[in-house]
Design a protein around this nucleic acid. Structure first.
Lengths: 243, 243
DNA sequence: AGACTTTTAAATGTCAGACAAATAAAATCT
DNA sequence: AGATTTTATTTGTCTGACATTTAAAAGTCT
């Protein structure tokens, strides 16, 4: 891990990469303490600020955590699913907004992934997750709900569906896909009638999950996808011809 | 974005979060230049090293890029799919290795997601992607191939399948799931017979994709998943009773 | 002796000021 | 006009210092 040729790029980036490699390859294990900043500076033959910049890079990825005080230092962090979620959501959101991904593309991806969860969810969903879905459906039916609140509730509903698969890896992967769609969905204005339609689909999904009927869940998801894409298309067309 | 109460945590983390929020919310747009480090230091009433640590955090997430020289500075980066891939692979790999996710869980997630791509891939795969899959199958049949090389080729094969869906969002989401599995797969020793079996499944998948037969692709993937999980189970049992 | 308080040492967090290197625009020269 | 040199700006790095936090060691009192 000591390797550090002084030729090409930023020293702090090189040092960060060296430590990152050591973590990923397992040379540094969880909760192990890194040498102090002064020691690392000596080891890499750089100054302490440079080492610190490298450590901050790693901290930004939740690969290490730092602690002050006598027994403090930088420790290899056990990456939690929660940390991974939030990073993924940030990344996915930016990816979608910065690359001008078409609504259809994002929508297709989201529902393809969600349908992958559905059969598992139909088998494993807990009563608790079912209750969450019912509660969100109830919330969505409230009059006077803003469009944004409606979307947030929609995300919570689908999140419960995904978590029903009882597979943390799947939940992690899908958190990005579902939540990153929210800003795009927020561009849609939901009329009372369209809300009613969406709630009907949600109810159908919840009912089918309760009955552990995977096929019906899948069918309802396809319908919901079609309907959502139609809504977005209408909005786009109305924008083109505003009068 | 100027807000910065000096109460709780590290200043550099706060500053990074403030700038990150400005980017995510769209206040700072792609390719826009941030104020110079000296100006930021003045603006936030901190020293330049503190600002630099904050910027390094953002650089670690590929949110900004820096450039030296007269017209240099820190610029809001257009997050590329490629950057997002590599970040996701690092995160997923660590998540799997650090949290001792069971092989079955990861495997289930991977194949669930891959099956989500399959119908799209059956419709849209290009001749080029098909050729890649054939080439990887050919490589997998070479005698004297190490287990690691076999796994790497396996990843490349499945990667081509996923890319066949022609949906960058899906490709991005699945890159992590597929590639992060590789270290786990590397723990399996592939006998000549098991390689033969896997190659047979791969061939079946490629044939079905060529024929645009989504149903057969799905069926073959299920078979491959079952077989892979059986292999892993055998390895685990042999470890328990080594004699 | 045991419990409490004080001191001390080690570590990260922050600051100030300086110089090096890169880079493009401005100024200068041929 | 074109090529060259100068200059200014900005990031990258270094040195040295002080502040803050924290736990262990030392000391004190009952």
């Amino acid at each position: 891990m000591k390797i550090d040729p002084q030729k090409p790029a930023d020293l702090s980036a090189q040092i960060a990469q060296a430590i990152r490699d050591a973590i990923v390859s397992g040379q540094l294990i969880v909760d192990e303490r890194l040498p102090s900043e002064a020691e690392l500076a000596e080891q890499f033959q750089v100054s302490r600020p440079t080492v610190r910049e490298a450590l901050k890079r790693l901290a930004a990825q939740s690969l290490i955590r730092t602690q002050r005080g006598a027994t403090g230092g930088a420790f290899v962090n056990r990456l939690s699913f929660e940390d991974a979620y939030s990073q993924q959501i940030t990344t996915s959101t930016l990816l979608l907004s910065m690359n001008a991904v078409r609504f259809d593309t994002a929508c297709e991806a989201r529902y393809a992934l969600e349908r992958a969860c559905a059969p598992l969810s139909a088998t494993r969903r807990t009563a608790d997750q079912l209750a969450t879905m019912r509660a969100e459906i109830f919330r969505q039916a409230q009059p006077g709900l803003t469009d944004e609140a409606f979307c947030a509730s929609d995300v919570a509903f689908h999140r419960a569906l995904v978590d029903g698969a009882d597979n943390p890896v799947l939940s992690y992967q899908l958190a990005g896909a579902v939540e990153a769609m929210q800003p795009l969905m927020n561009m849609i204005t939901f009329t009372a009638r369209s809300r009613e339609a969406i709630i009907a689909y949600h109810t159908k999904i919840a009912d089918a999950l309760e009955a552990k009927d995977a096929e019906t869940v899948d069918f309802a998801l396809v319908e919901l996808e079609t309907y959502t894409r139609q809504l977005a298309q209408d909005v786009a067309e109305r924008k083109r011809k505003p009068a």
